[in-house]
Design a protein around this nucleic acid. Sequence first.
DNA 1: GAGGATGACTTGAAACTTCAAGTAAGACGA
DNA 2: TCGTCTTACTTGAAGTTTCAAGTCATCCTC
Lengths: 171, 171
Amino acid sequence: MNIQVIGELGYAAGMGSEAVEPRWLQADELETWKTLQLAMALLTTALGEQLQRDSGLSFLEYYVLAGLSDQPEHTMRLSSLAILTNSELSRLSHLIRRLEDRGLVRREPDPNDGRFTNAILTPDGHAELVKAAPGHVELVRKLVFDPLTGTERRALQKAMSKLLPGLLGDC
Amino acid sequence: MNIQVIGELGYAAGMGSEAVEPRWLQADELETWKTLQLAMALLTTALGEQLQRDSGLSFLEYYVLAGLSDQPEHTMRLSSLAILTNSELSRLSHLIRRLEDRGLVRREPDPNDGRFTNAILTPDGHAELVKAAPGHVELVRKLVFDPLTGTERRALQKAMSKLLPGLLGDC
DNA sequence: GAGGATGACTTGAAACTTCAAGTAAGACGA
DNA sequence: TCGTCTTACTTGAAGTTTCAAGTCATCCTC
């Protein structure tokens, strides 16, 4: 099975007669997009599977615990955590409840402003994170950094950085 | 809110005393990883939202229709489609059923070998794809290609290509 | 300082994905 | 040619995410 073969229709030129003909992708751009998309999808899957298998955490759960562990008091508002993890508040609220049920996190209203809710990493949650981290980091290194030279790594970072303003929009 | 701030614990050095100290990420690697991860997450979200909003298709649904449209007879085995779209067979089977219910795809056993099932794009499905494609491609162009110079685009492609062997593993 | 607006969640239901079996067709060995 | 094995799905239930309201605290205006 040739895994490189990804549908061109939907990306390349010649799809029909639109009122305003869009700027279709050129062959080399299409190639780049296929590569980028495939690598992103495979990377996400691989990291998620490793975490789930070895630590019983989804990628988002790991990311939430890691985000909390990095804050003073191991505490963060749900709304900040939602931005940090690029997930909707509703999704996060459900997820925090499940982490709470597992004893990895607890919830408290902000004492200074009752509209906010803080999520707080418990000692158990921190312990789980510490157990999960080495395997996760090892895989990131193996999949992302080991294959690249220093120059390539810097070029990758530069290119991705230039996408961020457009992706962040007017935030 | 500083959206750049992503937890370092879980990635950077100094997490404790493991039996075998893992190869933690260096500061510059960590920076690259944060950038890459953030950009990937935002890009996926942005493209998915545009498709859902403007065409009522999830990213995977679009990808499935595009994959089919690219095949002779607009037909592909579910197992091939699963590899192409990097999704599990079970997920795909459910998704194809829903697309079937919406009349965008139909299912047929392979006439030559009854173990295989073919998914076939219907005229309605093709029409939906043709309607969805311009907006999607426009956004890919705007978010990925407009911000990059030709040199940067080629560097990005090169770096991502070098990750693929590791990501594909022993396939 | 009452009354409505705003922001930050929370909740329940619907949609979707994952997990664990189950089914069925063809290959293969005895 | 019979039984077993493998492959390619399919299915139902459990778990997760999304969607559409709902709640509640604070702010803002008159």
